[in-house]
Write a protein that binds this DNA or RNA. Structure first.
Length: 858
DNA sequence: TCTCTGCCTAGAGGA
């Protein structure tokens, strides 16, 4: 029988004599029921506490473990296979691997390249061509890791020859192989990506050497865990293989130097590996830091000994290896621990999404279903599937990594979305499998990046930067001369202060005040003075936008770092290509990248004089550290009256604004909205300190656009700002009456001659946006408020989707309304249910404001 | 019943 529940009490482990000899035994109570754990499973009692979630598989009728039983601690925690691998070496290595960034060292870069070549070879690629292509593609990384391209080519070639020589002897040839298989089990709380499967048996590739007849123990554990995951799919591999590609270059006298080492994956090994997984899960549940005493690790021979001792010393941790160096300040330690905790808690939340995936009952926002593959193309990298699909309201966007499956997402393959329209989805995928649905793959990528940036900032960051961040030191400014910006003293001031800042400057830019132009002027002026600038932001869209605007006024030498899917077409020619080495990065005046990219291996090798960070009011401190670590001078651009970070934390912009209000400048002239449109926002959110830049801006109307005939608009749509009342009876977050009304308003505007491209529809809920989008022409942009932040349109229709007492948390943050009301240049139409909107003061005042010109009776 | 973007998820070195 199987059992899963919450531990209510735990007995102690003891030894009893049985007819099989002495055995360990312990009792655990789960939701009040006694479960008896025998043998090695008895250790579980020492891992768990009251409140832990535990699953038992194949117990006997008395709820005792048998030879076939498995016990899983905290199955909802999705432990990664590689985490267990390093835990087996030493629990501290697992912890260090989590908080420290991947070093830019040649062996690591080489390991990546050899894996890529291995994958190419399994697809039948030519060795020479694959080595050449992969090494050249990563030219900058190779050079930054301290190796020349020529030597790397030779080296990778040797490893590739070892693989292909061995593959050529393989009876299966290229058949019977699958590469890069994603394996996930929510029953075991385990996930991982296996390098390859050879007729259902796991194969792991290592670029090192192993002269014994057996693979290293941690490698066997890694492969055993893949075998365990395969069993969950009904595949029962009897053996596993580790390939050590460096063995090919060894002397035969050293022992067994064949590259591939097979070994048996028996029940004992699998159970052991699962218990190790449980140890990791128990530690993660408590958010504890291991000391190294948990395992019989021998510190004297450990190559991670120095970093282990340094981290322990800096963070005042106990470590088996000992501690060296000076501890960080107490407030820094506190900040580190708090941030670590917060990141780990958010990671757990993401794991909850795996459980929903397994249920298959996942809400539609996480998946696209009823997909039909229409066409399959083969390209050098794998396959491209062109699929028809019904319209959807999912979170899935172009560039995302998704699980493609024929029904059960947990048995899916990773695919990348190349194109997405309401009717079609095009993905690239390594295997041509049957596909009927796509699911969001819950990614914890960002968390490891935040942890490593946090580590760098607090543990290895410079004193002065830290003191400014923690409010221990006042930012300093020097005198600089800059040319003035015509008719805009506040922009001129922002550029001057930004350039004068030796530590920090905060530029607050309310909607439409020319943040992007100010950034361009500042970066250009900074480059003119011989500085090297990092231009960064949270989203790719904002980075691209900043780059485009900079290039309009400057001929600075700029490199855009990012991924193919992320960087927009308009600036993709600024990315490095295969012919560029590290010098292209070292010589650039400006490097532009997302904050996430800034903690990548490549960016971590670069230093700058100044970082200009856009969207800083949407970034948490830990997310911003990646960019802040790259330069001693920080210029943050944002607006604390617009949307905050999604994570429930204060933004880095707000934090520093509170600590250093004297380092802030505000932009006050807005170029976007007609006077009538900006008035409410200016009064409610900016104390009336924002003005139209000039008379033309203030007097903007829809009439000014060619082809528009305002006589075709009837009251109340004639007014620049107007309100349309609709009674609402929502189903979920879909307010259907409002959907219809909004579509009607859009149609009226289009009939009056407004171009579709000049109209935008925004609404708080994604599902509401999806419904509206189906009822308006394709060139009308429909999106959530959050996603519309940063852009604007001539005419905006807001579907407020309010009902009842407006209980939804989406209405709790008033800043969302500020964003919604400040996207329109010439016409703002609000659609909503008056009786609901009256339940909140701010919204009620908004209704009165919108109706001020309205002569029709309520 | 809320909002949501990043990223190629690779790893030598010892017994």
């Amino acid at each position: 029988m199987d059992l899963r529940g919450t531990v209510t009490s735990v007995g102690s482990v003891r030894t009893v004599g049985t007819r099989y000899g002495d055995r360990e035994v312990a009792e655990v109570y789960v939701d009040g029921d006694e479960v008896t754990l025998w043998g090695d499973w008895a250790e579980t009692a020492e891992l768990v506490d009251e409140g832990f979630d535990v699953a038992f598989y194949d117990l006997d009728g008395d709820r005792s473990t048998t030879a076939d039983s498995q016990v899983v601690v905290e199955p909802s925690y999705m432990v990664d296979v590689t985490a267990v691998r390093s835990w087996v070496q030493c629990p501290r290595i697992q912890y260090l691997g989590k908080i420290r960034p991947t070093p830019m060292e040649y062996p690591v870069v080489k390991g990546t390249l050899v894996h890529q070549v291995f994958e190419d070879l399994l697809r039948g690629a030519d060795v020479d061509a694959s080595v050449e292509r992969r090494v050249r593609e990563s030219g900058a990384e190779v050079e930054l890791s301290g190796e020349s391209i020529e030597d790397a080519l030779k080296d990778v070639r040797q490893h590739a020859d070892a693989i292909s020589g061995w593959l050529n002897q393989d009876s299966l040839g290229e058949d019977g192989w699958r590469s890069e298989v994603t394996l996930v089990s929510t029953d075991l709380g385990l996930k991982g990506r296996c390098d390859a499967l050879r007729r259902g048996r796991p194969v792991e590739l290592k670029t090192g050497k192993s002269v014994g007849s057996d693979p290293y123990f941690q490698d066997k554990i890694q492969v055993a865990l893949y075998a365990l995951l395969l069993r969950e799919r009904g595949v029962y591999p009897e053996t596993g293989t580790v390939i050590y590609t460096k063995n090919a270059s060894l002397d035969r006298s050293e022992g067994d130097v064949s590259p591939a080492k097979d070994f048996t994956v028996g029940d004992g090994l699998l159970d052991f590996a699962l218990r190790k997984r449980n140890e990791v899960a128990a530690y993660e549940r408590r958010i504890e830091v291991p000391t190294g005493y948990e395992a019989e690790a021998d510190c004297s021979r450990c190559f991670e000994r120095d970093p282990c001792m340094v981290v322990a010393g800096r963070l005042q941790q106990e470590s088996k290896a000992g501690e060296i160096g000076e501890a960080v300040e107490n407030h820094e330690l506190e900040f580190f621990n708090e941030s670590y905790r917060s990141i780990e808690e958010r990671r757990r939340e993401v794991y909850g999404e795996f459980a929903e995936l397994a249920d298959g009952g996942r809400s539609s926002e996480y998946s696209i279903t009823d997909v039909e593959v229409e066409r399959v193309e083969e390209d050098g990298e794998g396959f491209v599937l062109h699929c028809r699909k019904p319209p959807d309201a999912s979170k899935i966007r172009e560039g995302d990594v998704v699980l493609a499956s024929d029904g059960d997402p947990l048995r899916g393959e990773m695919a990348r979305v190349k194109q997405l329209t309401p009717e079609e989805i095009v993905v690239s995928i390594s295997e041509d499998i049957r596909v009927s649905r796509f699911d969001v793959y819950p990614s914890e990528f960002g968390f490891s990046r935040e942890l490593s940036a946090l580590h760098d900032f607090v543990l290895t960051g410079e004193r002065r930067r830290k003191d400014v961040f923690f409010g221990e030191r006042e930012p300093e400014f020097r005198d600089v001369d800059v040319g003035s910006i015509d008719g805009n003293p506040s922009q001129t001031d922002a550029v001057r202060r930004g350039l004068a800042a030796d530590d920090l400057c905060l530029i607050q830019g309310p909607p439409g005040t020319g943040k992007t132009y100010t950034i361009a002027r500042l970066v250009a002026a900074s480059v003119d003075r011989g500085e090297r600038v990092l231009l960064s932001s949270y989203t790719n869209r904002a980075v691209d936008n900043a780059v485009e605007n900079l290039l309009k006024i400057s001929d600075a030498n700029l490199v855009r770092v990012g991924t193919e899917g992320g960087v927009g077409d308009s600036v993709s020619h600024l990315m490095l290509d295969g012919d560029d080495g590290a010098d292209a990065l070292r010589d650039a005046d400006v490097v532009a990248a997302t904050t996430s990219s800034c903690s990548g291996r490549l960016m971590r090798e670069l230093e700058f004089d100044r970082v200009v960070l856009d969207e800083a009011s949407q970034l948490t401190s830990t997310a911003a550290f990646a960019a802040m670590n790259r330069a001693p001078r920080w210029v943050f651009v944002g607006d604390q009256m617009q949307l905050p970070p999604v994570a429930p934390e204060e933004s880095v912009f707000e934090r520093l604004l509170e600590l250093h209000p004297d380092s802030a400048v505000s932009l006050d002239k807005q170029y976007r909205m007609a006077q009538r449109i900006q008035a409410f926002s200016a009064g409610e959110f900016y104390d009336g300190t924002v003005y139209p830049a000039n008379h033309e801006v203030a007097a903007k109307t829809l009439d000014d656009l060619s082809n528009v005939d305002v006589d075709k608009l009837e009251d109340p749509l004639r007014d620049t700002v107007c309100f349309v009342d609709v009674e609402s009876s929502p189903q979920g977050n879909v307010h259907m009456e409002e959907v219809e009304k909004t579509a009607e308003v859009v149609e009226t505007l289009l009939d009056a001659g407004v171009e579709g491209d000049d109209v935008g529809v925004i609404t708080p809920f994604r599902v509401q946006a999806a419904e509206i989008s189906e009822r308006v022409p394709d060139d009308v942009a429909v999106d959530t408020v959050d996603r519309f932040q940063g852009s604007s349109k001539e005419a905006i229709v807001v579907s407020l989707a309010a009902s009842g007492e407006m209980e939804s948390p989406v209405f709790e943050d008033d800043r969302r309304l500020n964003v919604a009301l400040t996207r329109a240049k010439r016409k703002l139409v609000l659609v909503g249910d008056v009786s609901a909107l009256r339940s909140r003061g701010l919204y009620s005042r908004m209704v009165d404001w919108a109706r001020a010109d309205d002569t029709t009776p309520e």
